[in-house]
């Protein structure tokens, strides 16, 4: 499957909300989409394109904005596909994928607590890896690592 095949299926339904389908080494492509189109895009990727297996969800902090990416796998094509969307840093919010792929549940919990991206309508958005009540978002660029003595202030309260 090539990026053109992906965009041929997705473009008619999403229109301008599908920003681009770029080539990506070792994958069927990298789909860039508007974050508002998430709920229209995910079922189409799963049912029309056949990517039934969601492997991971992650977030990247680009300082001025944040990126959420999804890696999905198709058993028929034996290929991965990368879906990626940008969210603004002051309102990092995107629709959950766990209604379409149940496996997104834990990955989104992890992305929420480490990168600080809110997933709307997530069934169970609580801390997974960090303790309950942990208020820092460690994978943001503004969170700096320190020597342990300075760090205790940040971690000790839990």
């Amino acid at each position: 499957m090539q990026p053109d095949d992906v965009s041929r299926v997705l473009a008619p339904a999403l229109g301008p909300k599908l920003l681009a389908v770029e080539p990506f080494a070792g994958m069927a492509g990298r789909v860039r989409f508007e974050r508002g189109a998430a709920l229209e895009l995910f079922p189409r990727v799963r049912d029309d394109l056949g990517f039934r297996h969601l492997s991971m969800v992650g977030g990247i902090d680009w300082v001025d904005h944040r990126e959420v990416f999804y890696v999905v796998w198709s058993d028929a094509a034996h290929q991965y596909l990368l879906l990626s969307t940008d969210v603004p840093a002051d309102n990092p919010r995107v629709e959950t994928a766990s209604g379409v792929w149940p496996s997104a549940n834990w990955h989104e919990r992890e992305t929420w607590e480490l990168v600080g991206i809110e997933f709307d309508n997530h069934p169970d958005l609580r801390h997974l890896l960090t303790p309950d009540g942990y208020e820092f978002r460690p994978l943001l660029r503004s969170f700096k690592l320190h020597e342990p003595e300075e760090l205790e202030v940040k971690t000790r309260h839990v």
Partner: peptide, 14 residues
């Protein structure tokens, strides 16, 4: 989970 969360992804950035 999380009792062994060592922040490997964060340390890797350093």
């Amino acid at each position: 989970m999380g009792y062994l969360h060592r922040g490997i992804e964060k340390i890797s950035e350093d």
